[in-house]
Structures are given as C-alpha cells and as structure tokens.
Design a protein around this nucleic acid. Sequence first.
DNA 1: AGCGGGCATGAATACGTATGTAATACACTG
DNA 2: CAGTGTATTACATACGTATTCATGCCCGCT
Lengths: 333, 333
Amino acid sequence: MVATSRDVARLAGVSQPTVSRALRGDPRVTAETRRRIAEAAQALSYVPSQMGRSLSTQATHRVAMVADLSNPLYPLIVPPIHDALAARGYRMVLLAEREDDSAGYSPLLDRSVDGVLLTTTRRESTLPFELNQRGIPTVMLNRIGGMVDTDSVVADNLGAGRVAARMLVLAGHREIGLIAGPGEASTSTDRETGIREALADAGIALRSSHVVRGWFGHDSGDAGMRRLMALEDPPKAVVCVSDSVAIGALNAARDLGLRVPEDVAMVGIDDVPTSGWPICDLSTVSIPLPQMAQDAANLLVDRLTGVVSGGPVHRVHPVHAVPRGTHALEGRT
Amino acid sequence: MVATSRDVARLAGVSQPTVSRALRGDPRVTAETRRRIAEAAQALSYVPSQMGRSLSTQATHRVAMVADLSNPLYPLIVPPIHDALAARGYRMVLLAEREDDSAGYSPLLDRSVDGVLLTTTRRESTLPFELNQRGIPTVMLNRIGGMVDTDSVVADNLGAGRVAARMLVLAGHREIGLIAGPGEASTSTDRETGIREALADAGIALRSSHVVRGWFGHDSGDAGMRRLMALEDPPKAVVCVSDSVAIGALNAARDLGLRVPEDVAMVGIDDVPTSGWPICDLSTVSIPLPQMAQDAANLLVDRLTGVVSGGPVHRVHPVHAVPRGTHALEGRT
DNA sequence: AGCGGGCATGAATACGTATGTAATACACTG
DNA sequence: CAGTGTATTACATACGTATTCATGCCCGCT
C-alpha cells in the first residue's frame, strides 16, 4: 500500500540499509547512489515511518504535556512549549489531567513519549515519583510537589504574593480581603504565604472572615467576591490569588453595581493578556509564564539530548508589579 | 532496563505470545496461566510498549490536531476534542499551523498518527488533498476549503451573519459598519456574505468606507474600531466577524471614551464565554463550537474504526441569536 | 485400544527502520 | 606484483508486540 524503504531500495537497485543511510545524510554513500535513491524515494513519495524509526532508535521525539485544560492559563503556555519543542524536532502530545488513577497515565509509561512536562502537580501527586522511578525525564512547570526532587521551572510566587499585597498597602488600604486558591497547589499556597507576610510586615491584620478560598477560575472570583461583599463589614480592597479570579471578581463587582477601585480596590497575580484590556485595566503582578514555558520545554529537551545531566535543576523566574487602574484611586504606585 | 513481554514470559514460565494474549484478554488462555502472567507483569511493573504495538498493528491510536495556537477560539475546541478522543482510546498530538511548507507537515504523513483534524483550512490549502491522496482519514472542523471533498463539521456561518446583522437592523440601526475577517477563511467569508444579504434585504446600504478588514483577533477589532470611529461619518453600529474582534472593538471604544451601545452599538459572532461576562455583555450569535469539536472528533474516530464509511460526511450545526446589552438601547430583541 | 477433535501453548514470522559487521572493489605503496 | 588500506555497499540482526500456523496434549467415542 504505502511505500517502505525496501520498496525504494528495490527501485533504486540498492539494499534497504543504504536507503536508510542515504536519506539520513550518512556521508558514506556515493553522490551517485544518493541521487538514484532520492529519485526513487521521490517517485514513490516515500516518507520514513516514524513507528519503525522509533522502535529502532528507542526514541519517539515526542513529549507529553499534562495539563488541566480548564485552567485559564493553559492557552498561555501551550504555544511557547509547542514552538520550543518544534524548533528542536519534538512534538507535543496533550494529556488532560485525570484522577491519579494510574491507568489514565499509562500513555506516559508505555514509552510512547520520551519525556513529560507536568503543569498540574499537586502536593501529594504520585506521578512525578513514578516517572522518576522509570527513568522518564520530567520537568515540573509552574507548580511543584510530588514528594520527589525533579527538574522544575517556577515563578517566585512568594515574592508575587508580597508584591501584590504591598501594592494595596502602599495605596493606603488597610481593610483587605483575600480570595485564595486551593491548598494543594504550590502556586496558590506560596502566593498566599507571601500575601500574609507582606500584610503582617505592614502591621495589617487579615481577618479570617475576610478570607475565602476557591479554585483558580472566574467562578471562584465571582463567588468569592459576592461572599465578601455580602459581609457586614466588607473589605475595601481584595487580593486575588490569580488574574482569572480577579477578573471573576471584577465581573461580580460590576454585577453588584460596585465601582472599582472607588468602592473596592483589587489586585491579581499573573498578568494575563485580558488584564491589560481597557475594560479590565487590572493591577496585577507579572508572572512570565510564556518564558517559563519555553524555559521548561528547552530544559526537558536538554535532558533528553544529554545537554543537561546530573542532579535536578530548579529555575525560579522573577516577578514584578504591573500597576494599572484597579488598586488605587490616584496615580500608579 | 525496562521490562518487555519477553521478560514477563520468562518469569511466568511461558512464551512471549502467551503473555501478549493473556494481557489482551484473549479467551484462549487458561485462568491459571493468566494469573501467573498477571503476577509476573505486576512484579516487573510491565507496561506494553506502544511502539512495538503500533508497528505490529499498524495503528497508533493517535490523532493530530492542526491548529492556529494564536486563534482565540482554540481553547474552546481543544478540551472537547481531547475528551472525545480519550473516551474512545485515542490521544491528541498538537500541531501548530506552519506555512504550507510540506516539510512542516511531515509528522502527518509519516504514519505517526492515524487521522487528522484540521481547524485551519484555507481556501487554497493543499494539505487536505495530500492527506486524501495518502488515504489518511481527515475531518475539517469549523473551516472548509482545500479543493477536495472531505468530511467536515461546520456551523451555519451564512445564517450566523444574517442573524447578527438582523439584530442590529431590528434594533433600528441603519448606519452600520462592518469589521470583516480574512478572505481566505470560509468562516469569515460566509459570515460576511450573510451580513451583506441581511442588510440588503432590509434595504440598508453598506458603504465601502464603513467596511474594514482584518484577522480574527482582538487587535483587528481594536484597530478596526479606531479606523471606523475616526471617519467623518462613523457608523452608529458595528457588526464584527467574531466575538474576539468585537471584544477588541469594545476595548477600543472604552479607550476612546465611547459608550456602548449609546454611542455605538455592536454585535459579534461566536458567543465565547468572555462575551457573557458582565463587563462585556456582548450581544452575539451562538456558534456551538464545543459541540462541533466533539462531533468532529467522534466523526474522525468513526472513520478510523470503520463505523462510518463511504462518501464524505458534512455536518452543519445551527446557530442562534444571543441578545445581550450591546446591540440595542432598550430591551433585548 | 485406537483414533479424531478440541484446546492450550509454542515456534516462526511480520511490521519498518537503524546499525554493527562482513564483504567487495579499487587505488596506492613498496 | 603482492599487500595493505580505504571507500562503498550488502548482510544480518535488533527493537517489542501481534498473529498465523504448527504442535502436543488430553479426552471422549467407537
């Protein structure tokens, strides 16, 4: 049906291995032979089978990315990863997060990918350990955990929390609320720690009634904002664990008829593109997610190609404040 | 290094084919033998190699999705496709659109995927033809083209254009502008045709100075809106070829200090989640993209498994108006 | 008791490529 | 001219699984 290297060999009057060598640019093949083979390959519109190649070389040139497709950040990290991988000859297999059901992750263990990029690691994930045990190169992006020391690329989430809280403090706010994220994700807990530290440093008490906890999405922000604003003594400013949450909160505020920042100020963390839109104009802290994603992809390929070897590598990307219109009444601090 | 079926066979005291049969549930294996093999496999934490399996069965259980990662709609279609494929035992390989450089598409032709889902087809794309010629099952999602008759799943884009334009007409607008999309995409041109038809039916002239053309993203909407509003006689209402464009236009309006819909009304097409946010509240036309995506994925798997055979299948999904706050001053028509 | 039939399993092989080794041909040197 | 080295290609094999066919066994029937 479809042409194989043997067919090309027959047509060119050489052996199959010679075809393999010729097409892979092996210098041990005569120019004349090479020409004949190229001709034959062209005539049969031959494309080498990746399956055969993988089986022989024990390398698939494929990398799995494990992602939570409902996470609003994932469109930000997929393109850089794809491009970084593609630039180095690797392709991406997308794998949505499933329960830690080992069966669901068999695609990672059946040697159909050379390495794995994890973006959904939780504190108690067992997956990194399993991958480690099987010797499958792994890089944790954005979140860390899994009780094993593996390559990782993260942002300074603690610092991001501090910066976010400090923006509100410097703008003069003292009645501050917090819409926090899930306790299982390191991003979420690190940011929360930073926020609490900065508030404590400023001598501001964060009342437990002013803290609501949710997930990462708009829904959380919407629900959290409504709960905070329904309090008898609602906060005058709110730190959100992520921009998505903040944008959900912005929408809730709009829906409740509240003005931002006049009635309630707000800051997020991430600096997603949407936050920069004039209709949001959200003050936030920049997390260089695309660069982190690219960094992680390159680190993984470096492992696969042996450019990097030895103990685990941990990279922490710096963050910085992005003051816009939602954190303070006047000016941009 | 890593256990193979031969290792399991040795440990269980049987032959390799028996291991293959036992683990694949072949009824010809004794319960006792099956037990021994399961035990041995467990002990070696054996996972069948997908490479070996693929080479033998000539099926990879992988599907490529060709997407434009910068298209704001792609986060909407990836999850349904992933889940539909996963539910039927297939995985997704993501492939970003490249120039029609055939080398860039070799991943599609090297038998490393069983089928292809195209979401970036343009009028003059040659890829569908090549795939067709090689007998690789293909489904075009959302956009069609490529001068070949292949399975497709699209929305009634012509109808969507009509509905969008009619919303403005019914709200009493007569000075209407258009921010159109690229001429190479069927979605864009079909919608434009529908818009023009509806306006013509209503006896409304669409002045050529009121038509600007761009791409699909926010940038286009922003730039388009600014150009329209800079005219001496700017339109009082604008139809946008997509919600992303409309949201870009909304932001431009906000930036220009214009009120929507008081100063300028607006409708989009797609009904992306963002459009439903209170801060957007965009009137639009619903395109059931997630359902279309799921439909396309299932159609492709049906082809691969032989559930569907014979001539090309074309599915057109219906659309409907989603009136919100940007198309009319009062009420929701 | 002998023979046929069904059943569980093993041996052989195919899938398509890559690679290590052997073989051939040729040129060059002493 | 024989011998050695080099360049080029063919041969054999490995990768891991699935499948086809052959084998051996037990059992029941006559």
